[in-house]
């Protein structure tokens, strides 16, 4: 999170003064290509250091000729730089290689799994905002209340309790002991507006609740802390006092004056955090056997399925690059002071 924030706050990340929006976007896209290239180089050379995938692909009792044939078939007999060059040529035309295990293109496999992860991450994000924002604002408005003490204590727990442990506890309590919710899997999905999701069926929702809540807990705590800090800061500002001097109702002050101002930093952070939700759903997906990207990549790492791991890492990097850009644009839309700078030529 801090890294993401730092990147966002850096001079290069901001729409520069006097630069039109289009030029800003183009420059960022070019920077992104460079980052992707460097990343691919790093990932490719690192992955070659961790074990020989051929060992996983053939029966250890096979003849040496058999092993050599497999090695040749996958192109693993060639020097690393030649392998990389081939990968790069493929990547430019949109081919990130075939999975050693499944024998199918890595991108196609990821595309199959992505909706499940996206659904999980989006649900977690929605939960963290709808729960975290009101609690955080409440805590900020009543700094001395007992409710605030409970909320802030809870947020400390939310940040410090490990996700995997909490996930297991949730399964034990809600699925095993109480039997309210299913233990694992994605459940029944259905199509609505062209999107396939389990959020549209009751069975799917029952499967979604636990993993999404588990993934959201840390973010809820984070949103609470951000919202509270923002509320305390903004409520002390002159325009809030002036709004009160105008005789506005407290409700109006909170909704029209406080919220838009605290949302600016929260949106910034959440944009980046959405990336981490997708990228680090791995743990939650493993615990709840959620058939998403995280589970795919964990399996790929265990089986040394290089193309999947490389494709996944490049995907995550792309995701963060895109999110950063989107956050900058949303930020400009929320904050008129930034918008003006982007519009001027």
């Amino acid at each position: 999170m801090n890294e993401g924030l730092a990147r966002r706050m850096s001079a290069a990340g901001q729409p520069a003064k006097g630069t039109p929006m289009l030029a800003f976007v183009l420059r960022r896209v070019m920077q992104s290509v460079v980052v992707l290239f460097v990343m691919s180089l790093v990932v490719f050379s690192m992955i070659n250091l961790v074990g020989d995938p051929v060992d996983m692909l053939v029966n250890p009792e096979s003849l040496p000729e058999e092993i050599d044939r497999v090695r040749r078939d996958f192109g693993l007999d060639q020097p690393v730089h030649v392998q990389y060059w081939k990968f790069l040529l493929g990547a430019i035309s949109g081919d990130l290689g075939k999975s050693f295990i499944f024998g199918r293109p890595a991108l196609a496999l990821m595309a199959e799994r992505f909706p499940a992860t996206l659904e999980l991450a989006t649900s977690a994000l929605v939960i963290s905002v709808t729960v975290g924002l009101p609690l955080g604002v409440y805590a900020g408005l009543r700094p001395d209340g007992w409710g605030t003490r409970i909320i802030m204590g809870g947020s400390v727990l939310g940040i410090s309790i490990p996700t995997f442990w909490l996930g297991l506890m949730m399964i034990i309590v809600f699925s095993v002991v109480l039997g309210w919710l299913p233990v694992s899997g994605r459940g029944e999905t259905s199509r609505f507006l062209g999107i396939e999701s389990s959020a549209f069926t009751l069975d799917g929702l029952r499967h979604l609740v636990l993993p999404a809540t588990n993934l959201a807990l840390f973010k809820i705590a984070m949103v609470i802390r951000l919202a509270r800090a923002g509320t305390v800061e903004v409520m002390a500002l002159d325009f809030i006092r002036f709004a009160r001097a105008k005789g506005l109702a407290p409700r109006r002050i909170v909704l029209a004056h406080l919220m838009p101002n605290i949302l600016i930093p929260i949106v910034t952070v959440l944009g980046i955090e959405f990336g981490t939700l997708i990228a680090f759903a791995t743990v939650t997906e493993s615990i709840f056997a959620w058939p998403g990207l995280g589970k795919l990549v964990i399996d790929a790492i265990v089986n040394l399925d290089r193309p999947i791991v490389v494709a996944y890492l490049l995907f995550v990097v792309t995701l963060f690059l895109v999110l950063n850009l989107v956050v900058d644009i949303i930020y400009a839309l929320l904050d008129p002071r930034v918008r003006l700078q982007g519009d001027e030529t």
């Binding site: 709004a243 001097a245 105008k246 005789g247 004056h257 838009p260 101002n261 600016i264 929320l334």
Partner: peptide, 30 residues
């Protein structure tokens, strides 16, 4: 009473107005 029968103007005009709302909105709500 506030804003209706007694109004107050503060020292710093640069901070008396909400930066993310249009002037018109802030006047109409009053």
């Amino acid at each position: 009473l506030r804003g209706n029968r007694i109004a107050m103007i503060f020292q710093d005009p640069t901070t008396s107005l909400n930066p993310v709302q249009r002037i018109g909105t802030q006047m109409i709500e009053a």
